[in-house]
């Protein structure tokens, strides 16, 4: 019935683990992550690609997983917030977000972390203006953003191996 008839077999690497599933064509990537794989760290809010909450990295590029089809992830590498830490060792972005109180309710945070990682992977030394511009498509209703911009700058310094100088 309806779209359920269109099934496709896909294989994707998700946080380094190869996953094979037969999915409906209309299944979104975030539905695959949250409901099938139990990776509930990625959240959903606007469902219109404008709030950034559901951001994950596909082959290193940020995508809105609420509207990115699971079948389009076939053969690709998907990274979610659950894959950000190295075992028990938090990623510098995660540490900086906690220290700068760059989150409160935390619902938008996985999206901000992944979006920020996409920036720092390409631009190791971004200015506050570059960070703000890069994160302009991610909405946060708790923090007022300044702590987030500060946290990303702090994480960038640590990733470059510089000491903190706040």
């Amino acid at each position: 019935m309806l779209a359920e008839a269109h099934l496709q077999r896909i294989t994707a690497r998700i946080n380094g683990v190869e996953v094979t599933r037969t999915v409906a064509a209309r299944l979104t990537l975030v539905e695959l992550l949250r409901e099938d794989l139990g990776l509930t760290g990625t959240k959903v809010s606007c469902e219109l690609q404008v709030c950034g909450v559901c951001t994950v990295l596909v082959d290193g590029s940020p995508v809105s997983s609420c509207t990115y089809l699971a079948i389009d992830a076939d053969g690709r590498d998907v990274q979610t917030v659950e894959g950000l830490a190295d075992g028990e060792q938090l990623h510098p972005l995660q540490t900086a977000f906690v220290e700068s109180m760059a989150l409160q309710c935390g619902f938008c945070t996985p999206g901000f972390l992944m979006m920020s990682k996409a920036l720092l992977d390409r631009v190791p030394d971004p200015s506050p203006e570059q960070i703000a511009k890069h994160l302009d498509g991610n909405i946060c209703r708790c923090t007022g953003y300044e702590p987030i911009i500060r946290a990303v700058g702090c994480a960038a310094r640590r990733l470059r191996g510089e000491a903190d100088h706040e």
């Binding site: 990776l39 509930t40 760290g41 938090l90 977000f97 906690v98 989150l103 935390g106 945070t109 972390l113």
Partner: peptide
């Protein structure tokens, strides 16, 4: 440090 924030940044 707010301990709840540590849970929130890992997606847990």
């Amino acid at each position: 440090i707010r301990r709840d924030l540590l849970e929130k940044v890992t997606g847990a």
